Simulated assay, not measured.
Amino acid sequence: MEVPFFPILFSSVRNSVVNQPFFPTLEEWLVKHPKIHEFSWNNGKTLGSTPRFLALTVLAYIAFTFLLSQVLKPSLARPVLKSISALHNIFLVTLSFIMALGCLVSIFSQVPNFKTLVCFPMRTPPAGPLFFWGYIFYLSKIIEFMDTLLIILGNSMNRLSFLHVYHHSMVVVMSYVCVDSAQSSFSMVLVINCSVHVVMYTYYFMCTLGVRPKWKKMVTDCQLLQFWASFLVMAMLVFYHFTGSGCSGILSWCFNAAFIVSLLFLFSDFHAKNYPSGPKVKPKYA
């Protein structure tokens, strides 16, 4: 039993892309490279793969955020801070683009049909190109802790909200769980999230250059849109799980579904407060 429309769309787009002259080159670099193609997530052997590492990393982030913001209150000279921020943002724009592209090329190269994309077979091992990009995605979420440090160093404490800290800490957990459990459909969520982050960090990079783009609201709109897109993907995963022989990582899906619901609620509340339908107000969070 198939979900109508999406399998046909996927097949059509996939066939169109793989027949393009540039695809073999991208595939050679982003899928068939030995480090990518032969990747395997081994709990306890792969860097950052243990639950202990995950717990200590998240707890350290929360502890240092509290200490630096409430006790130490460090600061940097504005020119130095702007330079570091610019490098950080352009690095994450580049990394997010590469992850999105790498995962997308891996999908078109390795995934035979839409059902497999949404619903990995049961007992799928976390190995190969898709999980390599999932692993890089997980590590990138740790790098994004730098966002918080830059906020504190710039004394922009109005931006250090519960939403910010909760999002940064829990998304690391979500990313870890996705790879460790070989969760179905995570590659689609990765592509969506990284695409949104290209837009978001481009906005932040332009701000460090002294340019204030007029499309700030679009950044939050894109974040909300990605949550709704994730819900659609998750709904299809559930459909395939209960109408077929089951999908890999269904238990971790339950955790991630609850997390995305909480993010949708928090971001919707943020959107309503900062972009009311009445007179325009200056956003409080960047």
Rank of each mutant, 00 (worst) to 15 (best):
S277W: 01
Y166Q: 04
M174T: 15
Y285P: 00
A60S: 10
Q223C: 00
S230I: 02
P24S: 04
P276F: 06
E144C: 09
F242L: 08
R14D: 05
F145K: 10
W29H: 10
F23G: 07
F91Q: 02
R52F: 13
H33P: 02
W253C: 02
T25S: 10
S96D: 02
V198L: 08
I62Q: 05
F267K: 06
G102H: 02
K141F: 07
G249H: 05
T116R: 08
M236G: 02
Y135D: 00
M200H: 06
A272F: 00
P51A: 06
G210N: 11
G278Y: 01
I143Q: 04
L190D: 08
T50M: 05
F265T: 05
N193G: 11
I250Y: 06
K32C: 06
L92G: 03
S16R: 05
G246R: 09
V189A: 15
T46Q: 04
L264N: 11
M174N: 08
L59P: 00
H271Y: 13
T243L: 03
M170Q: 11
T57G: 08
F22M: 12
S181N: 11
C247Y: 00
H197A: 04
N256D: 07
L266R: 13
V31P: 05
V111E: 03
M146R: 02
M122A: 09
E38Q: 10
N158H: 15
I90G: 01
E2M: 05
V189P: 09
P79S: 08
A229S: 05
C194A: 04
M1S: 03
C207R: 09
W133T: 12
S248D: 03
F10P: 12
G134T: 04
F227D: 00
D221T: 15
S248H: 04
F120D: 02
I142C: 12
F145D: 00
G48F: 10
W215M: 06
V189T: 13
G210P: 11
K280R: 03
Y285C: 01
S169H: 08
F132T: 08
N274Q: 09
Y240T: 03
T148G: 07
K216H: 13
N15A: 12
T220G: 11
V165L: 15
F131A: 01
R14L: 14
L153K: 02
F53I: 03
L209V: 01
L190S: 11
A286V: 06
G249P: 12
Y176Q: 07
N89C: 11
K284L: 03
M174F: 06
L87N: 10
H164G: 08
M170L: 15
V219C: 11
V31A: 07
I136C: 11
F267Y: 12
Y240E: 00
T124L: 05
S12A: 07
F23R: 03
K32M: 10
Q70M: 07
D180K: 10
T148M: 11
F108H: 05
S96R: 08
K216E: 14
C178N: 05
R123K: 13
C207N: 09
S245K: 09
L163W: 01
C178D: 04
